[in-house]
Amino acid sequence: MPVIIGIIAIVLQLTLIPLISFDFILPDILLIVLVYFTLLKGQLFGTVYGFILGFLFDIFSGGLIGSAMFSKTLADLQPVISLAKTESIIT
């Protein structure tokens, strides 16, 4: 299920999202999906999920293969750490 949602997010990111761009600044819904599933299923899942979606994104976008893989894999680390910090502050 997360992979299907991820693929839909990639397609939307590459097709419809540029239509609402403002001076080439556009929201990254792929990152939103990644953060959502990482928070839902944990850090390890998020890392692998980011790696796979990054790879698919590189393939679909025709960009440099490896660039989105690297950035999406790394991007998933941050929300978990932030969440852990927030929880530790609260408790």
Binding site: T47, V48, F51, G54, I65, G66, F70, T73
Partner: peptide
């Protein structure tokens, strides 16, 4: 995975 990405 980061290393794999960089190696690709």
């Amino acid at each position: 995975l980061l290393l794999v990405s960089l190696s690709i």
